[in-house]
Amino acid sequence: MIKVVDLCKRFGNKEVLKKINFEVNSCEVFVLLGPNGAGKTTTIKILAGILEADSGEVYILGEKMSVLNTKLKKHIGYLPDEPYIYPKLTGKEFIEFVFSIYEKELENEKYKFFLSQFELEDAINLPIETYSKGMKQKLLLMSIFLREPDLYLLDEPLVGLDPKSISFFKKYITELKNKGKTIILCTHLLDLAEQLSTKIAIIYDGRVIIYGSKQYLSEYLNVFSDSLEDIYIKVTQNKIYE
């Protein structure tokens, strides 16, 4: 589904990604973990075709991803870490806009379902500028879930969400995985990673230090504990490189 090969990215003098490599298959929830500034968001942005890599390649569904690859973008649902939504549009108009761009029909039943799950019924016809941060996040998630893309790239998806929406999010992600979709999550929440992930990649200082299932990570690192926290701390504190 996704193959990332020797991905490098530099911002000015700072090398943000230093030869990142990983592979993600269908029916997987792949979680990118790492401290702030490790390169998670940059990786996700390159996967989403928002940034161009300096070198290295990204293959999605066997096709090379680039900023100009609009065909591939139709298969992706991307949620940025700092989302911008047009403040003067209403929630419904935003959804309609997204659907007209993706050339998809909006299914009324599904639309109503997500509205009620995210409790946006009363707000959907109001301008987005009146929304709280959490409501904006729900609207964006809704616009992605409604489309049912093949690949979900979600950067810090739980920011601002209320407990009910978090619970729904977790259930829905599991459902998507079972349906054969691929999900890449970027998060700092270890419990979320633990609950949802099929594979975890720990990025540190622009490199993927290690990736695999939680069980594989703990065995490989000799962490005799059930906690992902112990694995994460061992990798990031001891700076284990490859």
């Binding site: 900023v67 100009l68 609009t70 973008k73 992706i76 761009i101």
Partner: peptide, 14 residues
């Protein structure tokens, strides 16, 4: 432009 990243994430021709 604030919406450039958003527009680039869509399958819209550059």
């Amino acid at each position: 432009s604030e919406d450039f990243h958003f527009l680039f994430s869509l399958p819209v021709k550059y």
